[in-house]
Design a protein around this nucleic acid. Structure first.
Length: 733
RNA sequence: GCACCCUUAGCUCAGUUGGUAGAGCAUCUCAUUUACACUGAGAGGGUCGCAGGUUCGAGCCCUGCAGGGUGCACCA
């Protein structure tokens, strides 16, 4: 800044002779900030002592940022800039996410377009291709984060596949195995037959479907089902133990009956999972392909048999239907049962919700598979305790209830994924017996139980297994003591949709690995929808690329436009008009500066202090005390995470009090003959200007820093490290 | 079915501990060689979803109801 001479000249800098043009300044200003080194807390001046840390939720490195990212980056940057100006030793750790499953899907779509398929590729080659694709997109994503003005410490940037991240994730896996918190088991999992991988319970969505609901004669019973194609192997008939209609049938009783492919022996089971109100109150079970049935089979130690293969086709047990896709087989099976006189009736319009893959909407086919699971209950208990003790608070507060609700209803977490793009699971598996064990050093070759050859697990971890440890991993907690200054972090700011997927896992891993919660405050922002409140999606064509808005209106306008009127946890309808309005605001501030500089021409260099009372008129003293009331109010709002209110109040003051009232009234004084009134007015205008510019800096960093460059102030620094306006002792109230 | 949220101006939404109903956009009128290419002054517009309750006082607290949204679980 020293080489910039314009501010030393008494004339109005030339820059102010034309409207503010964001495009001219933003790249240069960002460079100035970055070269100053102040993004890195280690380089901040001495007054910055107490750490304030945010770990950036690493954006997916598989494409462009969307406006939701722009909102997140803005919120985080507001907190960081505010705290930095207040004198905190601020650290904001940027990152990039390889985003396992999600990126692989993006890449598979690309392959599909090229007429290729991952199922015909060598996994190693596929991995290499996706890596190259990701690294290329990582650069695009980072450039967009910079364009948003993010004052994060790039020297500490982490990628979720960095070698130390992978190594540490492996160690956690081993540690959890040794502690009995990770186990390998053949359990029912959510299987997506399109992507050919299992999914966790948070990676499925439910979709309403209308299907026929069939009633079949099953020996002396009538059973109801929407899925006749799974019924080939059904040999258990289940009813509620208290159902008086079926009191004559006893647990374990065997019944001979005629079924799809001939006579079978069915066994009566009594279980409380049965809803007496539903259907006939009797059902047969298919443990291999239904979670509830699996639970019943577990409780009663029943046989299970696979009916449907991993690509969604019927197995030989289906007899003449073997090899058919289930949708194709269903009507034919019903036809056969009808021919045998076993079809009782059909409800044509049965409305139910079926789980689907959250990415491709393919119906989830539950399957029993040997996978690695995390035992959630003991971990969830700790997380519940920590949240109940107030160690983590939520903004807005109602997410606390949602967090606790989920933690109280948690299922064991399947962490195995049958995809290549991710962190490999460092384990050895015996295909001959049930042996499986983590093997970080890659030393196990033969099974200690049955002496057969072991094979390396080809699965990768669920992305959330590593990203759940992100607050620790991103601070390189395995290396050196640096992380201890910044952990636990202060705020985790992320989308409200991650309240299940991510937040609980981070709390759990933080408590498990180092005994401390990973953050004290969780700030959750809502979705950014289009102007009519509809969710942005590629298929609707209403996706807004933040870069387009930046090009049109400038980053500052986008930032404050995303903040005003946007309460935490609530979805936002984004209209371009609003952004445009804030572009005008940037220019208003620009012109205010021009007016104040013109009015102050010929004065000595100014200081940052409150003007001396002795030279101020009573009227101006009152103006300054009103300004101080705004400072106190806005500061309080920011501290309470009410950024939408702070931004609006400052905006309103600047435009409708400072510009419309104070400046209008000042014109007569500046032109008037009363020298002391003029001087008082000049000091007052200047002081109000610098205070407003400071207050706006977290929200609109570029225009405020640009203005700051041109202000005739002695001993000034970059605005980003100037002191936040403070009402010191003795200053006018 | 359960949980959570929402319902305030034409639209999008604020409204902090209960103390006279707010902003932006839109509309209308007027001004404007202006610090302002992106401006100003002013106006209209609300039974705060409905019904009760607590209170000196309720948009805010309590109960019930209705409508909308989101999430979770499903019920074979």
């Amino acid at each position: 800044m020293a080489e910039d001479k314009t501010y030393q000249e008494p004339d109005i800098p030339k820059a102010f002779l034309k409207p503010y043009n964001a495009d001219e300044h933003e790249t240069r200003i960002y460079k100035l900030w970055q070269e100053s080194g102040f993004f890195n807390p280690d380089n901040l001046p001495d007054r910055h002592k107490k750490p304030f840390t945010i770990v950036m939720p690493p954006p997916n490195a598989n494409g462009n940022l969307h406006v939701g990212h722009a909102l997140a980056i803005t919120l985080e940057d507001i907190m960081i800039r505010f705290k930095r100006m207040q004198g905190f030793k601020t650290l904001w750790v940027p990152g990039a996410d390889h985003a396992g499953f999600e990126t692989q899907i993006v890449y598979e779509k690309k392959l599909e377009k090229e007429g290729r398929s991952r199922f015909k590729m060598d996994p190693q080659d596929l991995y290499k291709e996706i890596l190259a694709f990701t690294l290329e997109n990582k650069g695009t994503m980072e450039a967009q984060v910079r364009a948003l003005g993010a004052s994060c410490d790039w020297s500490r940037e982490k990628f979720t596949l960095d070698p130390d991240v992978v190594a540490e994730t492996h160690r956690t896996f081993k540690k959890m195995y040794d502690d009995g918190l990770v186990y390998r088991g053949s359990r029912i999992v959510n299987w997506c037959s399109k992507h050919a991988t299992s999914l966790s319970d948070v990676e499925t969505e439910s979709k309403e479907k209308i299907d026929p609901f069939y009633y079949f004669k099953y020996g002396p019973f009538t059973i109801g089902t929407a899925r006749p194609e799974t019924k080939f192997g059904d040999k258990y008939v289940v009813m509620h133990p208290e159902d008086t209609r079926y009191a004559e049938y006893k647990q374990g009783q065997q019944i001979e009956l005629e079924w799809i492919n001939g006579p079978i022996t069915a066994t009566v089971i009594k279980d409380e999972a049965i809803d007496m109100e539903f259907g006939t109150g009797v059902m047969t079970i298919t443990p291999w392909h239904d979670a509830v049935d699996f639970g019943i089979a577990e409780r009663h130690k029943l046989d299970r048999e696979q009916i449907i293969d991993m690509r969604g086709k019927l197995l030989p047990i289906a007899g003449e239907f073997a090899g058919m896709k289930i949708t194709e087989a269903r009507p034919k099976i019903v036809e056969k049962l009808k021919a045998k006189g076993l079809l009782v009736k059909v409800d044509e319009k049965y409305v139910h919700n079926v789980p689907v893959c959250y990415k491709c909407e393919t119906a989830i086919e539950p399957q029993i598979l040997p996978q690695w699971f995390v035992k959630m209950q003991p971990l969830a208990e700790k997380a519940i305790k920590a949240v109940e003790a107030g160690e983590v608070v939520f903004q807005p507060d109602n997410y606390r209830k949602i967090f606790l609700y989920w933690m109280n209803n948690t299922l064991d977490w399947n962490i195995s994924r049958q995809i290549v793009w991710g962190i490999p699971i460092p384990a050895k598996i015996c295909d001959s017996c049930s042996f499986a064990e983590p093997d970080l050093e890659n030393t196990l070759t033969t099974c200690p139980k049955c002496k057969n050859m072991l094979r390396a697990d080809t699965d990768t971890f669920d992305t959330w297994f590593s990203s759940g440890q992100w607050p620790l991993l991103s601070l390189s907690y395995s290396k050196g003591a640096d992380w201890k200054s910044f952990y636990p972090t202060d705020v985790m700011e992320t989308g409200s949709d991650l309240i299940f997927k991510w937040i609980p896992r981070m709390v759990i891993f933080g408590l498990y690995l180092v005994g401390k919660v990973p953050f004290h405050t969780v700030y959750l922002h809502g979705l950014v929808n289009d102007a009519s409140g509809k969710k942005m999606s590629k298929s609707k064509g209403n996706v807004i690329n933040p870069t387009d808005l930046i090009v049109k209106y400038g980053t500052d306008a986008l930032r404050i436009g995303l903040i005003v009127g946007n309460t935490p946890g609530t979805d936002l309808s984004l209209s371009e008009n609003k952004i445009k309005g804030y572009k005008n605001f940037g220019n208003k501030l620009w012109n205010i500066t021009r007016f104040v500089l013109t009015s102050c021409q010929g004065m000595e260099k100014m200081t940052l202090d409150v003007p001396n009372k002795d030279i101020l008129t009573d009227e101006d003293k009152k103006l300054i005390s009103e300004l101080h009331a705004l400072v106190a109010d806005a500061t309080h709002d920011i501290e309470e995470y009410r950024f939408y209110l702070a931004a609006e109040k400052i905006y309103h003051y600047v435009w409708h009090t400072f510009a419309d009232v104070i400046i209008e009234a000042s014109k007569a004084k500046i032109a008037g003959a009363d020298i002391s009134a003029k001087q008082s007015c000049q000091y007052t205008l200047f002081y109000i200007l610098i205070t407003c510019v400071k207050l706006l800096h977290p929200f609109m960093p570029f225009v405020t820093e640009t203005i700051w460059e041109h202000l005739p102030i002695a001993d000034k620094q970059l605005l980003m490290i100037e002191k936040w306006p403070v009402l010191e002792e003795g200053s006018m109230k």
